[in-house]
């Protein structure tokens, strides 16, 4: 029998909105279930509307948010039961995040390389600076950077794409089993984007790492993912094999989403924007 690496079982998350005394709430994630098998690593894409609950789901998988309903189980352990520091460290060695906005993920007063050393120390037992630097450099090289370029630099001294790649590199250091990557390539150009998604693919194929790939970029989702779910307003509206779903979406929102991908031609793209405007204004 194969155990699941990750299992989401009817997971729901609500947030209160409006002032302190308001009883309104929104359901950020509404009854979501899926699982990733242990024996077949895969790239699992989550795409969908802005505000549809993708990051909230990522936060729950990382144990940073607690669901209001349902369970999340990682490798046999209910993520909600992880309490002690030691349990948390053990979990984080195996599950690593890449957060959505690198400009928020890095403290502006800390050198970015410090994050990499800290990760190496906490999760790989590298206790000398030389070992930590070696780990950091190895990871940075994989995303087309090097420690020499980054040493002693603050986040505001790096470009958006550089910072985003540092975030990806950091997550590689512990050699995790699962990477939860929230928009990991939104700030890099097409060429680098391909090299990072190709890196994900080789992590899956060579190191058996599973990757949850949250993205607005349907082209790379199609290109590297095994399965995809499409979300709207907290609900999974369509799911299946990535190629099958994206080739022939059936839910109206999925169809609209696919059709809204801008064509790479100025006349056609400008026309698409005008049409959308006419549609929204007419509605």
């Amino acid at each position: 029998m194969s155990q699941n690496l990750l299992e989401l079982d009817h997971v729901t998350k609500r947030y209160g909105v409006g002032g302190l005394f308001s009883h309104q709430s929104i359901t950020a994630v509404n009854d979501v279930s899926f699982s990733l098998a242990s024996d077949t690593p895969e790239i699992f894409a989550i795409v969908g509307e802005s505000g549809s609950g993708k990051s909230t789901m990522a936060k729950m998988i990382l144990g940073n948010e607690v669901p209001d309903g349902g369970r999340l189980v990682f490798d046999g352990t209910d993520i909600g039961t992880i309490r002690t520091r030691a349990q948390r460290e053990a979990f984080m060695t195996r599950v690593q995040p890449v957060f959505q906005n690198p400009f928020e993920a890095f403290n502006p007063l800390t050198h970015v390389d410090t994050y990499l050393y800290a990760t190496a120390r906490r999760f790989t037992g590298a206790d000398t600076r030389i070992q930590q630097e070696a780990k950091a450099d190895e990871a940075l090289q994989r995303v087309g950077l090097s420690l020499a370029e980054l040493k002693g630099r603050f986040s505001h001294e790096l470009s958006g794409g550089q910072l985003q790649r540092v975030a990806v590199a950091r997550a590689l250091i512990p050699s995790p089993k699962l990477i939860v990557a929230d928009e990991p390539v939104s700030m890099v150009d097409a060429s680098l984007r391909m090299s990072i998604v190709n890196l994900f693919r080789s992590l899956r194929d060579e190191l058996k790492v599973s990757i949850i790939y949250i993205t607005h970029d349907l082209a790379t989702a199609y290109y590297i993912s095994d399965r995809v779910i499409i979300m709207q307003k907290g609900v999974v509206i369509e799911s299946g094999g990535a190629r099958a779903v994206l080739d022939n979406p059936t839910h109206p929102y999925s169809i609209a989403l696919k059709n809204a991908v801008l064509p790479p031609d100025p006349k056609a793209a400008a026309a698409a924007i005008r049409q959308r405007r006419a549609l929204v204004e007419g509605a």
Binding site: V47, E49, Q100, H216, L218, A256, L257, L262
Partner: peptide, 10 residues
């Protein structure tokens, strides 16, 4: 960079 393609068009 953080928008789905429909919202991006808007």
């Amino acid at each position: 960079t953080a928008l789905d393609v429909l919202v991006q068009q808007d």
